[in-house]
Design a protein around this nucleic acid. Sequence first.
DNA 1: CTCTTTTTCTTGCGTCAAGAAAGAAAACTT
DNA 2: AAGTTTTCTTTCTTGACGCAAGAAAAAGAG
Lengths: 394, 394
Amino acid sequence: MSPSKIRFSELVGEQTRAEIFATVLTAGPISRTQLAQRLGLVPSSVTRMLPPLLEHGYLREADATAPQGRGRPQKMLHVNPDKHIVVGMKIGPAQVSGVVTDMAANVLARDEEPIADCTPRTALSAAAALTGRLLSKAPEAADRVLGLGVGVSGHVDSAAGVCRYSALLDWNKVDVAGPLQEATGLPVVVNNDVNTLVVAERWFGEGRDVDSFAVVTVGPGIGCGLLLNGSLFSGATGLAGELGHVPLDPAGPMCSCGRRGCLEALAGDRAVLRHLQDGGFACASIGEAITLARSGTDAARNVALAAFTEAGTALGRGLAGMCNLLNLQKIILAGEGAVAHDLFGPALTQALEAHAFSTAARDCRIHVDPVQHDLWARGAACLVIRDTVGATLS
Amino acid sequence: MSPSKIRFSELVGEQTRAEIFATVLTAGPISRTQLAQRLGLVPSSVTRMLPPLLEHGYLREADATAPQGRGRPQKMLHVNPDKHIVVGMKIGPAQVSGVVTDMAANVLARDEEPIADCTPRTALSAAAALTGRLLSKAPEAADRVLGLGVGVSGHVDSAAGVCRYSALLDWNKVDVAGPLQEATGLPVVVNNDVNTLVVAERWFGEGRDVDSFAVVTVGPGIGCGLLLNGSLFSGATGLAGELGHVPLDPAGPMCSCGRRGCLEALAGDRAVLRHLQDGGFACASIGEAITLARSGTDAARNVALAAFTEAGTALGRGLAGMCNLLNLQKIILAGEGAVAHDLFGPALTQALEAHAFSTAARDCRIHVDPVQHDLWARGAACLVIRDTVGATLS
DNA sequence: CTCTTTTTCTTGCGTCAAGAAAGAAAACTT
DNA sequence: AAGTTTTCTTTCTTGACGCAAGAAAAAGAG
């Protein structure tokens, strides 16, 4: 038998093109040669893969005027931001908020639509209406709208475009992609809302340089999206990431899910509020609690700080468990609750370091995402970009 | 631009061959057509990939005598057990135990070598000696010894063949593959011991039909190996699976790692023994505790059962957390402690069901592996088979 | 000002994977 | 004996990609 050649790259076709696009996206303007090096390809392969990307207008060659030393000048490639736009959207219980972005996920316009109730009917027609409004705000330079990405909390079957179940929205087997596709005429991509954040962080944020990280959202609930070995991890049936209901304390308070001592019951907004109430400083909202902790009377501040500290400790223990199990390189804290990071952060870090088992788990970096109002919707837009470039190259 | 075809299969070359071998291995005697269907290939591709596998003697065509209805008779393919043999080995603190298996991982011979201490020097020379003894026991029909698989507890860098750190053996950056390769002249594959179990279960055991499962070993410590999306998950630096040190109870007992309330401190052997001692029925070993729980006096049995129940509850809570996070389809309980399943099982199941969040997590099946003495070593042998067929096809 | 050097990109060729389609083998049915 | 049915094989084509040689374009040397 003749010794067969080994194929160094494990990429094939479409996938290679998607990789090229992603690399151009994340590694800024980049030359063909550099691309080849990064992807473990020979330069000619890069050249060969490019025409479709350039013809579609996904990528563009820079005008290249800077002096580059001797040799043939590099033609830098970068994402062509003007040609295509994308709509991203998050369906929440009280409103639908969305953005229009270009192909580099820069936000071009934003808008939102409050909804009276969150029945599928109301929410989806609001989403369709919002899409129209957003597109009318977008620059007309755009040649073509690539699609609509939607983030929904709960259990989403993204292949089918269906929300199987959402506790927050009280949805049960709701077809999201179908109606929206019908109403807007756009390709629709649906996924879990936290997963949209994972994609956004992976492509444009803190996840660019690591291959396994978690995005943990802190707020009324605790959400978690995972990127393992470089790809989104959804579990066997798309339900992975229920960090909020990891049991942490057999003697803990009751959780909304009916069990005792879930992380969410120890570190969610309600836990903080309960703690404050017990201390005699009841607050109506978590925002109020944060204000109290930052600028209340001394007595109130102590109670509030203790409440956040306790939440931070619980969160740190939960994250430590996850790190021990998954050996993550980074944890990105996001969600509304991240603004209170100054209050719960120290306790979190301490608990995490105390319970992180091995050196590697201790090396797991924590990153707090600056509060970005559009982050969710932007993530949803990323879904479309990913799907488009990963699949639609004709 | 012409519409490009989509490549349905994501397999390429070597990988396809490895898939074919694995499918033949796990799906018994199977025809080319069936193989093609399973792997999403067209029959001709299967035919094309086979010659190297057949020539190497990894696979063989059955003599096919059974009547098969009309049509050209299928030529069933099966693993050729006789041609190659493999050595698998587990290095433990008190002995090295190993097996010789055929290519279907059937155990042909077993042996073990006690070691006085577990310094790398002692352990590795014992392993080399044991390899020699095992091979002399093996049938000489074997054409060729494919390699030596070694399972070591702790943090293993399998690519380098090095044990980075093992608490159990008190090893630090010990080169395992090098010396053994030198001493035995065989290709050596090293991995974490629990990971060898994962591979074994995936190929020959309870993991055959699921794509994401965990193997959890119960004993002095709690170990865990993960198979996610069909492939072994080792985390960013090979440290994933530290289930034993997931924090579960802030008020729990101290763990050997110095933290409080780790799963291992709540459900490991020592937890059971401590509970018994507190109840006034001190035992020297876990075996004694099991005997006590099964056939002691009523008072002793109550205490012992309570101890196991508590451990089972803690384990159930830990597993529930893992399920919630990873949406596993199955959890396989193994290790020495699995024999006590009748004692802690009910509590485990109850706690798991109580804390498993979503329907999918609740659907996660628990399987208790019947105590198999060679399971670890057999798993190590599987490593070699996997690596060989996955990589060495020339 | 021309020639060389250097770096980058492109073109042509060979190989391998894998689908498509048609043909060959081997059994059963009529 | 001829047809039917299922399985396996052969041949052809497309596409990905490495390899190697060549073309492009700029800086530096003589």
